[in-house]
Each structure stands twice: as structure tokens, then as C-alpha cells.
Computed example of a mutant assay.
Amino acid sequence: MQFAEIPGLPETKEKLINAVKYNHLAHALLFHGPEGSANLTLALALATFLYCENPSETDSCGVCSSCQRMSRLVMPDLNFAFPVVAKEKEKEKEKENEEDEEEEKTDVLTNWRKFATAQPYGNVHDFIYFNRFEKKQLNISKASARKIIQALSLMSFEGGYKIILIWAPEFLHPSAANALLKIMEEPPARTIFMLVTSQADQLLTTVLSRTQKILVRAFSDEEVTSHLVDSGLCDSKSAEQIAMLADGNMREAYRMVNQVEDKQVTQIRDWFRLCVSKDLKEIFELADKFHKEPKESQKSLMLTGLNVTREILLKNFDLDSLLRTTEEDRKFITAISKKVLHEDHAMKLYDSFNQAHYHLERNGNAKMIFTDLSMNILVMMAQKK
């Protein structure tokens, strides 16, 4: 991963590169930003820059042996820690099948490398499905912390930096976090800890206090649009629509590339009209159709609903300059704002769409979610001013 592969974020890239140039790079960095931000990709790009044999002023070369190995995440001095299935204490103590256990660990690391390469903007939920860890408790155990300490006790393979990248450190077991505190505060020379998270508020204060925070902002609409177009993932018109719905979340943008359709605002409009007319038969039939849609299409419709609700709120406050919908959808927004949904109801509707998306993410029953949301919309519209 190179800095050039990450869309936008020039200010954060410059900050990291200057820290390396002027020898101001902290020994423990916390890359934190909202879901779908470049927290992992920036950490990997920085690691690539540090290992590169011929770096330029602004990036790694991308062609040397170290850069090629970093593209596959197989550098011997780059160690990873990430959530895995939590094992019972009794099983951890048993060492009868050490060869099988070692083979299992190798497979998990291989899967992590594949996941980080294929879905660099993915979250823990994506990682769970990638590894088929559904309905299993995950953590970063004390045994993983011991392996980190052991790895740092050895000399560097190539005489350069030793990097420990901890992905999703919020899953650190308290005993594992406590075991790492001392070495994070006083690591061996040329050792760097990189913690990557979207849930910094869930980390122990003792861990936070030992890191330098690198705040990674969400992508702008322009950055998402240009990235999708330049990558050949979709045309400019679709990219603009996706960027508007994704709201800076590159993970959602990728997931919507093949799912977002121009008709989704029309679907929202027709759905709202059924709720205004209290046509329960049509609403239930629509719920059946929604249930049969692919999961990504279902979630994409919820995101469209969130965007429409945002536009309604802006229209209610006469902030027309901030509206992001196309001219053809603007009439619908104008018609429904104030006359049907005032700001209090629009805020509740925003929360309802957000909650529905959350439950779909966690495999809730789509038909029940859609029906419940429809009833909420129906009640709100019946209580119009």
C-alpha cells in the first residue's frame, strides 16, 4: 500500500511523511477515524514508506523488494495482532495438538492478509464474515500479547524497523492490554506500534495515554467520486450518487458500487406516499418485496432514506444551499418538508432509518424491520403539523 493509492487526505499524508523526515515519528501511533476511513490504509502506507529502499520525498517507490513484499503484507519485521475466536482457558492450556494449533494460526494470519488486501476499508463485521466467525466471541488474548513481546525480544531480520500493527485494539483483553503497557511505553530501539481503530472511545485510558493520536477524517464526496471513477468502478454520475449516499465512508461506497440504482429515491418517494395514504395492503406487499432483495440492496435503500431525511431537515431550516439531491428529486423534498414532516419528526425518522440499517447489518429479519419502519413513518406523517 502506497500513499498514492489512498484518495485525498493530503494533510494527514504530509504530517506522517514529515514526521519520518524530521525524525519525529512516535514509537506508538493510534490511527483512529470513522468507519470506512483510511485508518488502516494510512498505517500500511506508512509502514511501506518506512521499509522502502528508495523512497521519494512524498511516497515509497513501489518497485523495490520491500515494497513488493509489503504489497502482500509478508515483511518479516511486520507483525500483526487482530481479533480471533476466544478460546476457553482449558483449551489454551492443552498443548496436545501443537502442530494443528500452529497450522490454524498460520491460516488465520493468511486470511488476515487476504482480508486487509481485499477489503482495506472493511470493519470487524466484514472480518467476521470473511473468516466465518459468526456467533463466536472474538478477542486479542494475553497469549497474543506474549507473542508480541517475544517477537520484539528478537533482533530485526533486516536491520530496520520492527512494526507491530494491532488492528481493532478495542478487542484487547484487559490482561493482554496490561501486558503490553510497559513495552509500549519503553519499546526496543526502532520499534513502532501502530494501533488502528474506529472505536477509540472503547480503548483503555492506559493504552490511549501511551500513543500519539493520528485523527483520520472521513473522505470528502469529491475524494470518493474521483476514486471510484479513476478506479474504473463506475461512471461519474453513479459515483456522485454513491458518494452522496456513502457520506465519506469508503466501505459503504465500495459496497454500493453494484447495488445503488437511480430508482432508489423514487422507491423512497413511492414508499412515503403509501404511508401518507395509509395503504397497509401495499405496504405489506412492499415489505415482502424488500425481504427478497439482496442484503446490500436493502441496506442501500436505508442509506438512501437517511440521505432523503437529511435533505428534508435542511429544507425545513431553509438551508437550500446545502441540499445535495439532484434537481429531479428536489421537488419531492420540497413537497414533503414542512407540509408532511416537520423537523422533530424528521429527526425521529433519521434515527429510525439509522436503527434499521444497524439491524440489517446484524442480519435482522428484513421484512419485520421494513414493516416496523413503515409503521413509524405512517405514525409520524399522521401527526403532521
Rank of each mutant, 00 (worst) to 15 (best):
H227F: 12
K114G: 04
V265D: 02
Q68D: 12
N39T: 06
D320C: 08
N376G: 11
A218P: 11
L44A: 08
P34M: 06
Q2T: 07
R362A: 09
P187R: 00
I242A: 14
E98F: 10
M256T: 04
K13P: 00
K142A: 08
C64W: 04
S175K: 09
Y51Q: 00
F80D: 12
Q202T: 10
K295N: 10
K237W: 06
S198H: 07
A176I: 00
A239P: 05
K89W: 08
D126W: 09
E223C: 09
E11V: 07
K315Y: 06
S156F: 07
H345P: 02
Y254T: 06
P83G: 03
E185N: 07
M250N: 00
Y161H: 05
V224H: 05
N376E: 08
S156Q: 11
Q202D: 11
K93M: 14
R324V: 03
K338V: 07
E285R: 03
A116N: 04
I6F: 07
E14V: 01
T325F: 05
N18I: 00
A253M: 04
I333F: 05
S60E: 11
S277E: 14
K87G: 05
N307P: 02
M184K: 02
P7H: 12
I268T: 10
Q119M: 15
D201L: 10
Q212C: 03
S66D: 10
Y358F: 00
L78A: 05
C234P: 02
K384I: 12
I149K: 15
P174C: 08
S65N: 10
G305V: 05
A168R: 07
T371H: 08
S236W: 09
C61N: 07
S153N: 13
H24S: 02
S60K: 11
M155R: 15
K93A: 15
S144Q: 13
S66K: 06
T110D: 04
S71L: 11
E361M: 12
A189H: 04
P169M: 08
S141C: 04
